[in-house]
């Protein structure tokens, strides 16, 4: 697996919060009937979680299942387990109308960590953060590119973008965390 590298090789910037490229993450697009028993079983086996409800992400340690649309989930697993998980999902959903696609290498993942982590994203995303629920995943745009994020810790957000624009996204994050640009300074 040493040949596999993430888009930015884990680069990090420290401003009024810390932003880092989080490295490779196994990610699998699953489309199908989210209400079916087969889907429940497949997701449970892959992540240990329930099928997430609308705009929810269900997390179980290093695995998660996120709601993408009424017929699409994103399954997150450690990078090295993606292929095996794809095979398991395919098997569990066999016989139903579904699509499973490994997208682990098509994405870049970022961690935004610090007490003011939300302020960084408030500069880039047209999202009402005060109304963001615990465990909610929000698909939106970050400045000019598509992105999805969720609150992954008490003072941490995880943001996912397409791999090709990883450097652009890191550029946005770096400029947005520069000291002195806090949105709500004390």
């Amino acid at each position: 697996m040493s040949k596999a590298v993430s888009a930015l090789s884990g680069v990090s910037h420290k401003g009024f919060v810390q932003v880092s490229e989080a490295g490779l993450r196994g990610m699998i697009t699953v489309r199908g009937d989210l209400g079916s028993a087969a889907m429940k079983k497949a997701v449970k086996a892959a992540t240990g979680t329930a099928v997430p409800a609308q705009r929810r992400i269900e997390v179980a340690s290093d695995r998660a299942a996120a709601w993408m649309s009424p017929d699409e989930l994103l399954v997150l697993v450690p990078y090295g387990e993606a292929q095996a998980t794809v095979a398991a999902l395919e098997q569990a959903l066999a016989g139903t109308h579904h699509l499973v696609a490994d997208v682990s290498d098509a994405r870049a993942v970022f961690t935004i960590r610090g007490a003011r982590a939300d302020e960084v994203l408030r500069k880039l995303c047209p999202v009402d953060f005060d109304a963001l629920a615990e465990g909610e995943i929000r698909r939106t745009r970050a400045a000019q590119v598509a992105a999805a994020f969720w609150k992954s810790g008490p003072e941490e957000f995880t943001l996912v973008s397409f791999r090709s624009v990883a450097a652009y996204v890191m550029g946005l994050l770096e400029v947005s965390v520069r000291p002195g640009s806090e949105l709500f300074p004390a």
Partner: peptide
């Protein structure tokens, strides 16, 4: 223009 200047004026997509 906001943050959109220089390197991040617009997204530049890069292949691996």
């Amino acid at each position: 223009a906001g943050e959109a200047r220089g390197e991040i004026f617009q997204p530049l997509r890069r292949t691996p």
